[in-house]
Design a protein around this nucleic acid. Sequence first.
DNA 1: GTCCATCTTCGGATATAGGT
DNA 2: ACCTATATCCGAAGATGGAC
Length: 329
Amino acid sequence: MKTLETLVPLEFTLEAVQEGRTGKPLLQAEGRLLGTAFVWRVEEMKHFKKTDEAHLLLQRDRGTHPLLLAAGYVAPEAAARLKEAGIQFVDTAGNAFINHPPVLIWTTGKKPAEKAPLPRTGRIFRGAGLKIVFTLLCRPELAGKPYRDIAETAGVALGTAANTMAGLAERGFIVQAHKREKKLVRREELFGQWAAAYAETLRQKLLLGRFHGEREWWKGLQLDTAAAQWGGEVAAWKLTGYLKPETATLYTNRNRIAELVVANKLKKDPRGNVEILDRFWMREKERQEDDTVHPFLVYADLLAIGDQRTMETAKVIYERQLTEYFRED
DNA sequence: GTCCATCTTCGGATATAGGT
DNA sequence: ACCTATATCCGAAGATGGAC
C-alpha cells in the first residue's frame, strides 16, 4: 500500500474486520484515489506464488468489495494473469494493476527492490507436518487422541507427530479445551494454508510415477478402493459433474502400482497425463470408502494444476463439499 | 509402590537449500 | 552440476504421570 501512495495521490485507512464467525480476520482498506472513494479487501502476501494466484481466483467473487493483492513482488507473467482475471495488485517493487474507474493503473517490469527474505514456513507445513495436518483436518477427533494414533494414521514417526502438534498449538490451531482434551480450531484457515503448501511441496514428493493412458480410459472404470482411489481432475469430475479431465490422478499404495499399471494398460511416460501418487495416510478400516479421495485432497490437487478451468471446479467443491468440515462446535 | 500408557528427548539418517 | 551446511524426520530409549 505504501508503494501505491508513491504512484498516485492516495489517502486510506486500513482496518481488520471479522469475516463470518470462524473466518480469519480480513484486512479492508478504505480511502480516496484521485478523488474517487474506494473500499477494497486486501490480501497480503509477502511471497506471492502460483498457488496464491489460485487462492485469489477463489476469493475474487466472494465478498462485496473488490480485491487488492498487496505482495512483496509480482513477476511480469503473474501480473498479466492477474490483470486478465481482473484482480488488482501492488507490490513493493512498484508494479501495480488498479482498475477503479475512472482510474486505471498498470505498471509492470519493475524488478524487486531486494531479494525476498527467507520464507520460514515452519515445520507444520512441510513434508511430514502436512501429512499430519491433512489427517487432522479429515478426522478432527484425532487431535485429542494419543500421539501414537495420530502418527500411525498420518504415516509419520511418533516424535514428528509430537513436534507438529507443538507447532500447531504454537500457532493457535490446537487449543487445550479441558484438562487433557485438545481441539483443532480455525480449521478453514488451517486448510487454506495446508492446501497451498501441499500443492507446492509435499505433492511432488508423493509422485510415484507418470504414465500415458488411452483416451478417456478412466471413464466408466470401476476402481478397487483397496488398491487405489481417484484424486485430481477425475475425482473432481465425479464429485461435481463439471470439468472435462485432461489429467488423471491416482492415489495408491506403493506395492499396488504394478497391478494398476498392467490392468489399465498404462505406459511409462515422464510427460504423460496420468500421475500415480503415494496414498500415504492410513484409511479407516470400518468405513465404506469412496473411489475418490477426500475432497480436501481433490481440492489441493486442482490447486496444484491451478489454471482457470480447474479453479472454477475447485471453487464448486469448496462451496459444496468443504465448508461443512469447517464447522466447529 | 508398581504398572502401563503416553509423552519427550535426542543421535543419526536423510532430504533440502545455498553456494560455487 | 556438484559439494556443503542446515533443516527435517525417524525411531528407540528414557521420563513422566495417572490408576490401582
